[in-house]
């Protein structure tokens, strides 16, 4: 889980950056509030439809066995929702 700190939540600009990072992973990255409701993190539209507000926590799942790469992607995603 990571907390969204960007002032207006996972809104247009942060969503676009978030999706770009997820797309760069090369394997599916999913995001949502819980495991049963995940969307494609590489889609800015799907990210917007989550309507994540500032201060909410989101679950991010990297579908890969490459732990090192997953950690880098998660760090980068977390950094992009800090402010």
């Amino acid at each position: 889980m990571m907390e969204v700190k960007a002032a207006v939540g996972l809104h247009a600009r942060p969503a676009a950056q978030f999706a770009e990072i997820a797309r760069g992973a090369g394997y599916p990255v999913k995001v949502g509030r819980s495991e049963i409701a995940l969307v494609n993190a590489a889609s800015p539209l799907r990210l917007l439809t989550l309507k994540v507000q500032k201060g909410e926590s989101i679950l991010v799942v990297c579908e890969t066995s490459d732990e090192l790469s997953a950690k880098t992607i998660l760090d980068n995603l977390e950094a992009c929702i800090q402010n």
Binding site: E20, A42, S43
Partner: peptide, 12 residues
Amino acid sequence: SAQLALITDPEL
């Protein structure tokens, strides 16, 4: 740029 990301969104 944020709008461009929506236009090119593969899900759309």
